[in-house]
Amino acid sequence: MRLPALLAALAGVLCIAAAADPAERLPDPAQEAHARALFRDVRCLVCQNESIDDSEAPLAGDLRGIIREQVKAGKSDAQIKGYLTDRYGQFVLMKPTFDPGNLALWAGPFLVVAFGLFLLLGRLRNRQPDVELSKAEADRLERLSREGRP
């Protein structure tokens, strides 16, 4: 049945911002703020596209616990993220890494801008200069504008 499965999947959405729960909090506010900033970059692996900052799933709670401990132990962001990707792969990071495999992803938007500007410049360069009216055209214009007057 697809409906119960759907509802089960949705249950993760219902009571969100779980990371704010005072029961989990670190005593040092600076460390807690640092941990919260990290949570937003870590994906809740069993949820439907949520960071662990938002999710109430048990796994998200476990990951928050691990990250809070490591923040408390004074580990750097790189160390903590390295720890997570060693275990769960790149999928766990909400922000894709700047590695060659993601080149198209990061460069794509700016390539589109560059290509568009290139086309625009080409169009601007190729435009013909405004041509002067030939003698015949100038005469015709003169005649027409004289006819217009009463």
């Binding site: 937003r40 970059d41 994906r43 960071s51 792969g89 790149q90 766990v92 990071l93 909400m94 922000k95």
Partner: peptide, 9 residues
């Protein structure tokens, strides 16, 4: 290889 593209991107 699975990756995530989230709000930071």
């Amino acid at each position: 290889e699975a990756i995530s593209v989230g709000p930071p991107y």
